[in-house]
Design a protein around this nucleic acid. Structure first.
Lengths: 285, 285
DNA sequence: CCGCTCTGATACTCGCCGGGTATCAGTAGG
DNA sequence: CCTACTGATACCCGGCGAGTATCAGAGCGG
């Protein structure tokens, strides 16, 4: 059984995402005929039909859908191998976190590391919601600050850093903004003030009345404009606008901030960073 | 940046495991010179030295150790992509479990599935201790019965099935075998009856006086011969020999039997199987 | 109804690169 | 010093991946 090569996987992913051989070939920087041949050969080798060809494009079969998911995971793993090996010499670590989240904790962590003599230098990579796991999987980052139960922690080792309640972020002009505290019942189904919808792990959006958002700046502006509200961990108040008001939601589930790293990492630099993070979090509790 | 190909990763893993270009080449079924060239080219491309060559072999550098770990993960992911795609058409699932463990639960689960009309057919794959995670990662199996905290559950979704205490398995002739119950203190440091040592995740053995074992049959025979004892979940008594005696260890940590599946699986066949397993486990509790 | 245009498939050539054999070169050990 | 063993180098060949040119079928407009 001739093994799959990453080239074949990249080709297939391109076709599966474009559902069009010509566009996929352009994206890959090759001509269309070799791409058609490569996919055919892949199907022959696997003994499975991956695509239903049609005169106006291609559609994934069930096997194709399986391969698309598995191929993405595999390509991430290969990319991670490459990146982490390249960076193996350097002693610095890349820490990824959601822009704006756990700001205070992060600042204290960086301060503690800077003042510690033997600590490894840390680069900080900020990303949008839900992207940390991907950065960790494909090797762009070594450790991540994530939040349970919001983020996808599967496949990572984690250490809890701190637990916090959640607050509702409201437009300052809204009546609810004057309240001392709120409940989940208060903030769901507020007329004219729906809860914004984040993309799920697969990139699609849940149904609902709220606007679809991808980035924190979109969200911040929407709240300021009085278009929606949101419920987030209390520490995220760091990016509150003057037009925002944060009100504790007493019955919202607690959010645990964790530091996560790939299961396969045995580096003692990561271990040291985790230790620092844990002690910083304890000190502040 | 020309991406890594799986061929290069396989070559590197072979060399890194053999620490000898000639043997690695033989294992790969190619000649030694192309292998040397491939590794050199890999080092050039990554800009990192992976091996320290020496007149009597090769040794891994730090970067080489990183790549070895990452490459194994990546190759597993690629192999999984291939296997799962090949099997995408078939409706049957492969369930892997440790030979001898949770036998009663497994039998009830299979019975329940057999009598259920719409249930997917299930093949059972038996393996040795600690191998389930690997089978799940490289696509040889779709779901696994595993035991917390013994098994490596990182990267999988899991559902708890049942919780049980642990028993000490002793040679029937030993004085301790007559006891009604034992404590961990009783069974540690028994003169002439050490606890057997299992390989860790990386294949090495912890230090200690007991014999090194890999398989359950080795273990069973060693106990029958009076060479060692072991502490295992109560349900594993299924493979007890006549020369064995099982005595509850009251203060040993409980073991949770779980059913685990890869995070990336969205198949409803797996979901159905997990539901069946959960209800079977509940019914027996 | 013909032809234009879009799709993916086929035919053929070319050149790179992965693989082979033969050989070199340095070191350890007798 | 010679032998045996390591990995590295030199050189050649063949396969396969990629390119261009072209085909074939389906939709659609004039």
């Amino acid at each position: 059984m001739a093994d799959l090569e990453t080239r074949e996987l990249r080709y297939f992913v391109a076709v599966a995402e474009e559902l069009h051989f010509g566009r996929a070939a352009a994206r890959l920087g090759i001509a269309q005929p070799p791409l058609s041949r490569a996919i055919r050969q892949l199907e022959r080798r696997l003994g499975v039909q991956l695509l239903d060809r049609d005169r106006r494009g291609a559609a994934l079969t069930e096997a194709g859908r399986v391969l698309l998911g598995e191929a993405r995971v595999a390509l991430d793993a290969v990319a991670a191998a490459e990146r982490r090996t390249r960076r193996a010499g350097e002693r610095s670590l890349v820490l990824v976190t959601k822009a704006g989240a756990s700001h205070e904790l992060l600042r204290r962590l960086l301060d503690a590391l800077a003042s510690e003599p033997g600590a490894p230098p840390v680069e900080v990579l900020l990303c949008e919601v839900g992207e940390q796991a991907h950065r960790l999987r494909d090797g762009q980052a070594d450790v991540a600050i994530m939040h349970r139960p919001y983020d996808d922690l599967a496949g990572f080792d984690t250490a809890d850093l701190c637990v916090e309640g959640q607050v509702a972020i409201l437009p300052a002009a809204h009546p609810l903004a004057a309240r001392e505290q709120l409940t989940l019942a208060d903030v769901s189904d507020v007329p004219g003030l729906p809860i914004a919808r984040w993309p799920r792990l697969d990139g699609t959006y849940p149904d609902g009345p709220g606007p679809e958002v991808r980035t924190q700046s979109q969200l911040a502006q929407l709240v300021a404009l009085g278009k929606c509200l949101l419920v987030i961990p209390a520490s995220s108040r760091a990016w509150q606008w003057p037009e925002h008001v944060a009100v504790p939601v007493v019955d919202a589930p607690d959010v645990t901030t964790v530091i996560a790293w790939p299961r396969s990492s045995h580096s003692q630099a990561i271990a040291a960073l985790v230790r620092s993070a844990s002690s910083v979090a304890d000190g502040s509790a």
